[in-house]
Design a protein around this nucleic acid. Sequence first.
DNA 1: GTGAAAGCGCTAACAC
DNA 2: GTGTTAGCGCTTTCAC
Lengths: 330, 330
Amino acid sequence: MATIKDVSKLAGVSVATVSRYLNKNGYVSKEAAETIAEVIEKLNYRPNNIARSLAGMKSATIGLMVPDILNPFFPELARSIEDAANGYGYTVMLCNTDNDSVKERKYIDTLLQKQVDGIIISSYTIKPEHLTGLQKQSIPVVLMDNVFSSDSVVSLTVENRRGGELAVQHLLAQGCSKIAHICGPLTITSSRERTAGFEDASRGTDWFTPSLIGYSDFTVKGGYSAMKELLALHPDLDGVFASNDLMAAGAMKALQETGRSIPSDVKVVGFDGIGLEMMNPELSTIAQPISELGKTAMDSLVGLIREESDIVTDQVFPVTLIKKQSTRKN
Amino acid sequence: MATIKDVSKLAGVSVATVSRYLNKNGYVSKEAAETIAEVIEKLNYRPNNIARSLAGMKSATIGLMVPDILNPFFPELARSIEDAANGYGYTVMLCNTDNDSVKERKYIDTLLQKQVDGIIISSYTIKPEHLTGLQKQSIPVVLMDNVFSSDSVVSLTVENRRGGELAVQHLLAQGCSKIAHICGPLTITSSRERTAGFEDASRGTDWFTPSLIGYSDFTVKGGYSAMKELLALHPDLDGVFASNDLMAAGAMKALQETGRSIPSDVKVVGFDGIGLEMMNPELSTIAQPISELGKTAMDSLVGLIREESDIVTDQVFPVTLIKKQSTRKN
DNA sequence: GTGAAAGCGCTAACAC
DNA sequence: GTGTTAGCGCTTTCAC
């Protein structure tokens, strides 16, 4: 494999000139530039990124940690982040932590060793103290779905609570009169918020009772079982808000299996806005602006890396109600 | 951040000794080892992977290229590969090529520059000549779903053709008498094979006619439209084999929308075996051994990296019929 | 058993 | 504008 030295020799210039040419900084005469370009072409030379990183202390690589790659939300997020990263010249190391904080810490360690220039962390389990290693080495961090007040960390969240409220309001507007809720893991902040939003909108109504809340785990199977249990307690419920789309899908299955039709007997709303085109009827949902979140995450990270001064450390994104067949009015 | 030098100084030994200790090669006296261990602990020292790569010419990183991270098949595959990679001490750079051969080549370039130790490529679009860059630098490659005869490339495929046959046979056994097929992109080898399997089993039967084959693109939407078109031509069809699960899901939706019930009116089989638990009824499918594929891919790659001699260059994995509700006998 | 020293390929002063 | 050179943090001969 050709090195910068080979190029410099063949082009009859010093490595410094080639380096300047490569990095487009410092002066390089037009002629020099041209011959260098030719030689690079001829030798099919590609700068060695590893050497570059070692010398320049930057790797042009960022880490992206996600809690569950099997939940379509995260591939969608990853894709938008990857696109943005490529635009900036960064490559992404995608790490699936499997919702396991041991794995999470191991990955943080690994990413540090690989000298990534920054990390985007989407995590259910992370705690501020896990970031101290990163802080100490002042690695820029963008945190999704969690807020830790700190000036070297950017936090991106969505209006989870308002989303929960919106969901209930929509169900009521469509004519529901007894709405159940399938909530996600209570260990997850955004999940708790969505449930809080549900309570905001339903507490005080004449139909609300705490047993209308089922506890689940963000999976299709979990949503399915939770729905079955809720139906046993409240066979007359006519609306369901699930804290994510996967649970909503599981709930729909349970409803259909017990002979209820959607939306005429029961209406269902999910949360996330992932592409679940295969659902029949299609699922209404409180959508997160996934691609905007990804793009902003990357923009912010680059801002931190470049030590720009005008970085917004906490951003809260709006959610939007997407009306589909699952909540169509009878 | 502490370096190997800091450790060596504090431990009163040379960097060479520390290096030997770290890599567990060469002799290190017990006492030396102990003090080094202590110092490492105390300094919270972590070897710099970048420097390691530069000196040792290996990065402990592998690349994984997938054509479509939004198709659940690939996250599942990625997850199993990642697990296996972690077991071997490798980190994975996941690259989504978006089914775009320009992006694909760019990623190959990037991965080369990052000095990955090997690459696992799952691609719809790749051609042998795209691997020449990798060959030249003798980067180990494991190819999934494609076979290029070459001794430095391991190819992993599944019995696509037999899977297509199995699907039809199953539908016939369940009582179908007119089976349509939704095939995937003809540019994809495995897709063509699945369709060939369908033809093997259906050509020569009294019901078969070429217009029972619909052409689509491996997406839910595509499967949906293809199904609608097929229904227009053959309203009396009673079985469908789609070349992947996503299209099968789309087909189910189209069938239900047109008032057909599954499985009593029409039975459906997919291909891949991804977790589509939200489907109602659940989808029967020809399953690929996804996690075994991932694990074997990683095992083979490590074999290539270590230049072991007993590497099987072409492996074909069996597929299995998973019977679910979508093909239940009436 | 251990250490000195020569790189790995590149960047970034600094001198010319 | 361009070249010289000293590292970046580590591995790995090779001598002791």
